[in-house]
Every structure is written in C-alpha cells, then in structure tokens.
Nucleic acid binder design. Sequence first.
DNA 1: AGGCTTTGTCCTGAGTGTGGAGAAAGTTGG
DNA 2: CCAACTTTCTCCACACTCAGGACAAAGCCT
Lengths: 396, 396
Amino acid sequence: MRRMTARPANTHQARLLRLLRDGGPNSRAQLGDRIDLSRSKLAVEVDRLLETGLVVADGLAASRGGRRSHNIRLAPQLRFLGVDIGATSVDVAVTNAELEVLGHLNHPMDVREGPVAVFEQVLVMAAKLRASGLAEGFDGAGIGVPGPVRFPEGVPVAPPIMPGWDGFPVREALSQELGCPVMVDNDVNLMAMGEQHAGVARTAGDFLCVKIGTGIGCGIVVGGEVYRGTTGSAGDIGHIQVEPDGRACACGNRGCLEAHFSGAALARDAEDAARAGQSAELAARLEAAGKLTAVDVAAAAAAGDPTALDLIREGGNRVGQVIAGLVSFFNPGLVVIGGGVTGLGHNLLASVRTQVYRQSLPLATGNLPIVLGELGPAAGVTGAARLISDHLFSPA
Amino acid sequence: MRRMTARPANTHQARLLRLLRDGGPNSRAQLGDRIDLSRSKLAVEVDRLLETGLVVADGLAASRGGRRSHNIRLAPQLRFLGVDIGATSVDVAVTNAELEVLGHLNHPMDVREGPVAVFEQVLVMAAKLRASGLAEGFDGAGIGVPGPVRFPEGVPVAPPIMPGWDGFPVREALSQELGCPVMVDNDVNLMAMGEQHAGVARTAGDFLCVKIGTGIGCGIVVGGEVYRGTTGSAGDIGHIQVEPDGRACACGNRGCLEAHFSGAALARDAEDAARAGQSAELAARLEAAGKLTAVDVAAAAAAGDPTALDLIREGGNRVGQVIAGLVSFFNPGLVVIGGGVTGLGHNLLASVRTQVYRQSLPLATGNLPIVLGELGPAAGVTGAARLISDHLFSPA
DNA sequence: AGGCTTTGTCCTGAGTGTGGAGAAAGTTGG
DNA sequence: CCAACTTTCTCCACACTCAGGACAAAGCCT
C-alpha cells in the first residue's frame, strides 16, 4: 500500500491539517470559523488537500437547518507509530491521523540492553500491530527515549541511565527500518504532549508535566510549545540537590532528588523497611515476589499500611519541595504529575500539594491546579504520534 | 514639538524598524541582506516609512566600490524614557531610537513611599532631562517595578516589598502624565532585555538573568522573548526555600533564598559580624557610616577582609545552589548575574560557578557561561526603552 | 409551494510580492 | 580622460494571494 507522500504546501494547509487532527471531522464552514481565512480561499486550500489525498470528503453531515455539509476529515488510512522507551519497558502503539490509539502493546525490557536489542523488540511489536490488521504500514513514527536528545538530529546525548545509547542515530536507524519519517524526543516531553493533546492539559498554555518513573523528569511547555533547552536537557530535574550530603546518586553526586525519591528509590526503601521488620504488609509482598516495586507500595498503602503511607508522604514532600521551587520560577498555569508512580495517586498528590501551596507565593499558586495525568501509559505513545504529526503537518 | 504618531503598517515595516534600532544606520541594500524581501518590495516599504517620518534618509555613505548608498536611519529626534524603580532608588534615562542612553539620572528613594511620591519624583527627573536639552518630549516610556506585573494591563499585583502599589494603574497614570504610550514590566525582566540589547546577552537565545539587589529575581528569556509566566510572577526565585526551618522571611515563610542572601541580608549579616567583633574592617566602616551596605562588604573584601570574603562566598553558595537547580531545569545557554551586588564581582561569581558546575549535569553546564552583566545601572533603563520600542515598533 | 437558512462555488478586483531591465553614481585601470 | 566594471536604487510587467459579493445547491419549516 502506498503511504502518505504529500506534505502541506503552505501554512494554511498545515493549519487545516492540525485543526482536523485536533478537532476531528469538520465541514468547510466549521473550518472557516476556526481559521482566519475567507471562505473562498479556504475552499481552494481544502480542494488542494483533497487532491493530495491527505484529506477526504466522505458523506454528508446531518442538516443544521439548511444545506447539509460535507464531512471533511483526515485520510482514514493514515497511521502513526508511537514508541515510548522507558527504563524498564517498551510501549508501542498505532494511531490514526487524529492520534486515537488503535492498538497498544507493552513489553518489559531494560533499556540498558542497548539500542540494537531494543530496536529489534520495537520492530517485532510494530510488525505484530501491523499483522493484527490495524495498519498496513506507517506514515510516520515518533519515539521517546528516557534521556536528553539532540532534537534536530534525533540523537540521544549523554544519557545517564542508558550509556549504550549515547550518540546512537535513533532517528536515522528507525527511519531506515520502518521506511517512514521519524522524530525523536525525550520521553517526558512526549508525555507532556500527550496530556496536552488528549489529557488534562488540553487547554493549558504554559504548564509543567512531572514524570515520576524509574527516574524523574519534567516536561516544560511554553505557549503551547515544548521547550527543550539549549542542549536538549531542559526538564532534567532528577539531579537537583534536595539534601546536602544526602544519598549517593548514580550520577556521581550526593543528595539528588532521584536518589531520595523515584520509582527505583521507593522500591528500595520499601524493601529496606520490609527487611527491617517495619511493615508486615510489605514483608509479605517481598516474600511473595522476591522484590518490591512502586506498585507494591501503592497496594500496601491502599491496604492502610502506615509504613507505605509514610514512604509515599515523605517522597511527595521531596518532589513537592522541588516542584515548589519550579512553580516560583516558572509560574505555570498547571502542573501535571504522571509516570509509573501515578498509582500512588492521591496520597502522593496530597503531600506534593501541601508543599507547593505552603512554599510558593500565593500569586503563583493562587489558581494553580496540581493534578494527576489522565492518560497513563497512553500519554507517551500519544505524544509520540503527535510529535511526528506536528512534523508532517507542517510545510516541507 | 510633534511627537511620533505613526506606527508600522505591517510586519515588514516593524521588522525594518527593529533592524534599524538594533543595527544602526543602514543602506537599503544592507537592509535587503538582513530581511527576506525582494529589493523592490523593500524599497516600497522603506519609502512608506520615510513618508511617515519614523525613518529618515540623511546623507550618503562612503562608496564601497560603486554607487554610494543613502544612510537610512530612525528619526534622530525620537526619544524614549526608561524608568527603573528599584527598592531603594529610582533610575530615569532618556534614549534615542537606537536605545542609546543620552542622559541618566539616579535618585535614592524608598519604593515604600508609594506610587504617588515615586511618580512625582520620576516626573521631576524626566523634566530635568528635558530641560537639559536631551529631549523635547517623549515618544514612549518603559517602566520597571520591583515586583510582579500583570503585563497586558501594566498593573503591579501583590508585590511583597511594595504593598502600596498593589493594583495601582501604573501604565495608565504614567501615560496620562507624560502624554505618550507606556509599558510596564518587572525590573528583572527589563534588566534581561537590557543585557540582551546591548550587553552580554546579545547573541543568546535562551538565557537567565539573575538580579541580586535588595531582593533576588530572575529574568527568563525563551527564544529571544521574555517569558512572564501565567500570572506575571515567573522568575520570582527570592522565595525558593534553601534551608528548611531557616531564617524568617518577610513573606511569612522560613528559609527563603532572599532571607539568607540578598543585598539586604548581606548588609545585615555584615553589621552583625561587625558588632560581634569578627571584623575590624567592617566595624570601622559601620562606625563611619552608621550602617553597612553591600558596597561596604565589597570594599572590605577587596581590602582582603576574611569575614567579608566569607560572607560573599557563603552567599554565592546559596545563590549558586538555587541557580544550579534552575540550570538543570531550564538548560539555558547563558546565565547573567547583575544587580546591586555586582560590585561583589568575581568573588561572588566564583562560588556561584563552583556550585553550578558541581551540582548540575555536564550536558547542561558543559558550554554554559556564567558571567556578570556588563551594563550596570544602564541595563534596567535600556531594557525599559527596549520594552516600549518593541511595542511601538510592532503593527498597531 | 414559497420563504428562509446553511453550505458551497464562482468571479472580480484590490493588493502583495518577485524578478528583470535599466538608470544613477561611483571606482579602477589603461 | 575614457571604457569597463561594481554597487545602489528605481521602475515596470507579471504572477499570485486573498477578500467579499453574487449566486447556486440543498436542506428545513410553515
């Protein structure tokens, strides 16, 4: 099957494609209300898009008191691949042009196995999605990796938790294998874009998206656009010092946020508490599974275990302390918290909120929602699809 | 005398005006090299600007091997007023359209005397500058205040150190008095814009500008544009907590950065040290003046006084610790340090650098200059002039 | 059936912008 | 001093963009 070859010829067409992506099917008249163009000009550009095949007119909508309108929509056979490489698992999903997830696979895998092994797995999963009939091919792919990325080239740089990936040409390699355009970004940025597209951040202009998984990172959105910093490492808050002479961190320093609270740190603390006999609940789970994860701590907390609750509360205080500083500095309109520890839920959220509302000035916190992400694992892959669609839906 | 009434009619004209402002006089050909327009279209827009009087063609430049070019420049009689309200003094300056400071006055004054008294003083100073022949009137004015500002309206909101200003219609009032357009911003943002226009940040895209005066604030520039946050309080880093249960701060919290280090805190610490007999040098100065300021500490340090050096070092460590966190988060391409304590100079800078380079990841600090601002008190007023010129040099 | 509404198409005219021809004004070398 | 060349600037013809109005198509309601 022939995949998408055309690109919008000008900014009007690009804007129309994004309107259709974000707003679903529309009539020409509805599009006209949302774009600053005359009806005549709009009609010309829509016609050109129809010619390219990027957009189709299928069927008529119900009348709204007059002539029925044509349904203009993005070509229904368009498919994007969203890939989210986490520290301990890989998510791969296929979406349509409106970025709705049609199929989603997850596979546990350590990112430290290196790019070659991970890519092999990604391609297997992509093939599986294709075989299931959800896609005959991919028109573009977005991929997120858990570390800083030199964005224009799509190459990870100096990633602390995935040393084997340093300088690996992710974009080029995946583009070769899949035969379609590929864009690469930090996994946290993709989560932010996912929540922006279909989650809690739909209406936010400036917001922060804190992802707490194995590590901790923060997506920064300024005026609707992801901010990546000068070298692509913006949002790398896991190594902000929260305790002078605190715990040793993998990065070589002491007292980093990540060393004191993250999915990995929480699991370790829980295991320590279990072995020290502080919690029968956690000890039982450790006995059963041989190890503990953030999910176990969440379950123990839900069961009312005071040690687990303490661990979560203390962790929330740590993150909250850092977020309070970021809120003072950045003055966002929204803070989203997501990642693997979302299961810790409102216990975590409560202590984060307490810290932020107590430590930041009222002007910055007065009208500041601090909420959990609502997309869960779909945030990353949705964001990945949005990344590549942003790229393809802009003039060549 | 008639002041500037015309505004650029389109974005081309606006871009031309800014090119002339930032690059000085130019021929049509030189302008053509810096703008993406054909020579013919360029000529048309330049002619229209000449008609409005915003731009003049005076004289011919030396030949560069062919026909001599006309010097195109901004109207030489254009005048902007730059006002920088500090916590303890007021700066007022007049600039030409290229934002060169033609005259600059400073007057010690406590901002807590309130907007009415301060405005009176500002108008006296503006009149003095006019009387000296530097200006016959003002085509626009920019004004900075030491607190958050609701930018679109030009109104201070909930400013901690200047309670009497809350909600005072600064923009409207000053515009009435001066009879010209006025824009209002936070003083820190103006310092950033000043250093961006004519100082160390001329080539920086994303940078931070930390101003340490009576308080501490931080200007944030993203892609060349000042970022002000959702409620105008972005960069308000003075109340980030640096020590749990630390010193009491005027804001009601404990352990704020500003309480531990700032011009005010430094002066107080120095006085305490002098009274405690820890430093003969500082004691002598306290004796002489009845009080100490950051300038005294700088002088004592320059004279080799170890107590003063310690105070500066310790303060630098505090700020450095916060800046390290911001660098990890924001990944700027440059950090500028300015404000009243610039006199502490390289002693301060050294400890800030040590903290940042030690605590932040190499990817973020690898190529990160941390430098002192080079404009001193001119940064604020230059930034103020730039603020209003940005406003006037954009389509109406 | 007739009037009204909504949707979509067509056409004209104003304005925007490009590129080339060429005039104006200078330098350089013989 | 003249011819050749360079740089700067102006003028003009042509293509393209885009808005707005007229009008046709297709529906609803009475």
